[in-house]
Write a protein that binds this DNA or RNA. Structure first.
Length: 526
DNA sequence: AGAGCGTTGTATGC
DNA sequence: GCATACAACGCTCT
């Protein structure tokens, strides 16, 4: 039977390595490629102008590629459940295809849509292609438990074998018997959105450094994969957080939106590695993709992964509430030039280096301001082009030493850390031109400059540029103490030692469930 | 129980 | 540039 198929793009905004799209083309006479602007996801609160612009670019590119196949993209505005119900009837859809998405909201949304599909007799086909592996399989492989260390994840993925090879984009031949009815007068109705549509002011928008879309992603991938020796010697901790142009690939936004398949990235790297000596996980580029897999897996296995409360693996910390601190951090006016420069780059460009994220995240949370990582998470989600639900939540937990990482006494200095890779403070001068006349000696701590130096630099601290919001040496010490106390309050493993346990059979190995294990078991059942 | 390890700390000494 | 002290965490394996 020939289907009328609706392929629903959500993430996975690409034609290459898109198994659900290929499944859509099978036994298909009419194809409707659809993207839904979901007010829950695509709204002014979660999605800053830069990210919105990236999405628009990606949709334009997708539409262009589909048109080359005599098809097009239909952009639909509204709640997915309601909109699909309408479209199933209007277009007499018999099959729905999409890429599997593990985010809690997506899972509940897709469950609702599956019910609507069933009502309309629409067959549903979905494929895993956003991650290297089916992360549910990784958890299964670990006896149903979430791997909480990278080492463990590495062992599990090793035992699963290499990720699947990517599949090619559909060709004109694949589309031979497939038609997308474009004649209807729906050019306007289903058009690509504009920035104005979401109410963003386009006049104030900075230059677009990282345009969205699969074509740009593949171009960028090619550009970096040509640098074979750079790829082979890549070690993440050795790359600079404050170089004037990115020291890493900036492929993350493309992977986030699925313009680039993680598996395509993985196998292109494997090609470059082939026969050469190369760096290894966790620091290698393959290692970076495995970090992504690590946090995706944790986000699926850990309930309430984007929150502290109700999150069984997250240390419960008595974070302060201080909206002025949050605002100063977000708006790049902490008085620490390194921190403020990073936050300025983030606001302008939508991307900052991973170690720069470490510096500002540590500063906001356990290092200096003692603000909940959830506050930082919100700001990053809004500003980052590569804002990804799982990675954002996972990394904020890491940096705040709430989960995964526990050496809370290792605190980044907002003064010393940046100096390692940028002694002159050129990065600071680029993003905070106000400070560009300060001599290198004072660029990381302008409040220490004598008044004469400040006058000569044309920038008075406390008037033109803020005084430091906190005394780092003082608060960081105190915060280590608060962290120590928070750790001391952590619930311990099932109180009694095995030998004292009443139902312990001597000699038999009894599994000691941690409180976290038990909480997770309980919550997964629901 | 204890050792070894953990992608990416800082300050100080040589 | 490299080693070391700092004061010290949880997880994993033995």
């Amino acid at each position: 039977m020939a289907h009328s198929t609706l392929h629903w793009f959500r993430k996975g905004l690409r034609l290459q390595d898109n198994p659900a799209l290929m499944a859509a083309l099978r036994d298909c006479k009419e194809l409707y490629p659809v993207f839904i602007l979901d007010p829950y996801l695509h709204n002014k609160t979660c999605m800053g102008p830069n990210r919105w612009r990236f999405l628009i670019g990606s949709l334009k590119d997708l539409d262009l590629s589909l048109r080359k196949l005599n098809s097009r993209l239909f952009v639909v505005r509204g709640k997915p459940g309601e909109m699909l119900r309408e479209l199933f009837s209007r277009w007499k859809i018999t099959k729905l295809t999409y890429e599997y998405d593990t985010e809690p909201y997506s899972l509940s949304r897709d469950k609702e849509v599956a019910a609507v599909a069933q009502e309309h007799g629409v067959e549903v086909v979905y494929k895993v292609s956003h991650t290297l592996y089916d992360v549910d399989r990784i958890i299964e492989q670990n006896n149903g438990k979430t791997p909480l260390t990278y080492k463990r994840l590495q062992e599990l993925t090793r035992s699963l074998g290499p990720p699947k090879k990517p599949i090619p984009a559909p060709s004109v031949e694949n589309m031979q018997d497939v038609k997308t009815p474009c004649s209807e007068n729906h050019e306007g109705k289903y058009g690509i959105p504009t920035l104005e549509e979401l109410g963003h002011n386009t006049a104030s928008l900075p230059e677009e450094l990282f345009p969205g879309g699969e074509q740009e992603a593949l171009r960028r991938l090619d550009e970096h994969m040509r640098r074979a020796s750079w790829v082979c010697s890549f070690e993440k901790p050795q790359t600079s957080p404050n170089s004037l142009s990115p020291s890493t690939t900036v492929l993350s936004p493309y992977v986030t939106f699925g313009c680039l398949s993680a598996r395509t990235f993985w196998w292109r790297l494997a090609d470059v590695y082939q026969g050469k000596k190369h760096s290894q996980p966790p620091v290698s580029l393959h290692g970076q993709l495995l970090w992504r897999e690590f946090f995706y897996t944790a986000s699926v296995g850990v309930p309430n992964f984007n929150r502290m409360e109700g999150n069984p693996v997250c240390t419960q910390v008595d974070w302060d509430t201080n909206s002025e601190y949050v605002a100063a951090w977000r708006e790049a006016r902490t008085g620490f030039p390194f921190i403020d420069a990073i936050m300025t780059q983030l606001r302008q460009e939508g991307w900052i280096h991973h170690l720069a994220r470490h510096a500002v995240a540590c500063f906001l949370t356990r290092g200096d301001l003692w603000i909940s990582w959830e506050e930082g998470q919100k700001v990053f989600e809004y500003l980052l082009l590569d804002g990804d639900w799982a990675l954002n939540a996972g990394n904020w937990q890491w940096l705040s030493a709430s989960t995964f990482f526990h050496q809370y006494f290792r605190v980044y200095s907002p003064i010393a850390f940046g100096k390692k890779t940028d002694k002159n403070g050129d990065y600071i001068k680029k993003y905070l031109p106000l400070l560009k006349k300060f001599p290198a000696e004072f660029i990381y701590e302008p409040w220490k400059a004598p008044r004469s130096v400040q006058l000569a630099a044309g920038c008075i601290v406390g008037k033109d540029y803020p005084r430091p919001i906190v005394q780092h040496e003082v608060v960081s010490k105190a915060n280590i103490g608060r962290m120590k106390a928070a750790y001391a309050r952590r619930p311990h493993d099932a109180a009694e030692s095995p030998s004292k346990s009443p139902n312990n059979k001597p000699g038999a190995k009894r599994k000691v469930l941690s409180v976290a294990d038990m909480l997770m078991k309980k919550q997964r059942k629901e």
